[in-house]
């Protein structure tokens, strides 16, 4: 089991009803894309919200990431919509 910290922002946070959580991932989850698939498998809001992959961006340890970015135990992984600041 690999424990990571997940952060959600903007409408992802609202629609999932969660800003932050720690999850224990089963073996075989090695990338952001794997993580998204595993989260969708939880069903409910996760299945509904995390299928909108074209509107979801990610960061691993506060650096922008892609589905292919590797994840490791203890990582901080954030999921959020395309940014709209400035």
């Amino acid at each position: 089991m690999m424990v990571v910290r997940l952060l959600y922002f903007a409408w992802l946070r609202e629609r999932l009803g969660c800003a932050e959580e720690e999850v224990a991932l089963p073996p075989g989850i090695g990338t952001v894309g794997d993580l998204l698939g595993w989260l969708r498998g939880r069903g409910g809001a996760y299945a509904a919200v995390l299928t909108e992959t074209a509107r979801i961006r990610s960061a691993v340890n506060q650096d922008f990431a892609s589905d292919a970015t590797p994840i490791r135990a203890g990582d901080e992984i954030a999921l959020f919509p395309p940014i709209t600041g400035g």
Binding site: A10, A78, F80, P81, P82, I83, T84, G85, G86
Partner: peptide, 26 residues
């Protein structure tokens, strides 16, 4: 300012006069 708009993680939500809230699309 051009880079801030695309590479700094901020998200804008608009509060409309009719009471609804909407997240701004990129």
């Amino acid at each position: 300012i051009d880079w801030l708009k695309v590479a700094a993680p901020f998200w804008k939500k608009e509060h409309l006069a009719d009471g609804t809230d909407i997240w701004v699309e990129a």
